[in-house]
Write a protein that binds this DNA or RNA. Structure first.
Length: 114
DNA sequence: AGTATGACGGTTA
DNA sequence: CTAACCGCCATAC
């Protein structure tokens, strides 16, 4: 799992992600390349929270996780950095059509790829 | 401590 | 098919 990237695991900045936020980041970090997940799916994995909360967490602490693999329920990337996300997704081989990910084909069911 | 905001989702019009 | 509204809940101020 992707713990801190800054080296030491000890004391970090004052704005350390809460346990809840880490849980969200954890899930997103597990999404394999070439696959995507919706905010609602992440929420389902967590068993609680709400898609909005997931978005807020990613917006503030998603810098270290493949946030572009988390898309809206309709298959479109989040409004912020949508271009960047589409480029990344396409590069990973995710089926994208007219700015929308083909969820039927790329939606990750949470099962290990291998 | 209370209020406002936001990388959303689903329903209704 | 598109547009608008409400509900949701952690985070920021």
């Amino acid at each position: 799992m992707l713990r801190r990237v800054g080296g030491a695991v000890g004391p970090r900045s004052a704005h350390e992600p809460s346990a809840y936020a880490e849980r969200v980041l954890e899930v997103v970090a597990q999404v394999p390349a070439g696959r995507v997940m919706t905010y609602g799916d992440v929420r389902e994995w967590l068993g609680e929270s709400s898609p909005r909360a997931v978005g807020v967490v990613l917006a503030h602490h998603g810098h270290d996780v493949p946030w572009w693999r988390v898309v809206l329920a309709d298959g479109r990337p989040a409004p912020v950095g949508r271009e960047r996300a589409l480029a990344r997704l396409a590069a990973e081989g995710v089926p994208v059509e007219d700015g929308r990910v083909d969820l039927a084909a790329a939606r990750w069911d949470g099962r290990p790829p291998a």
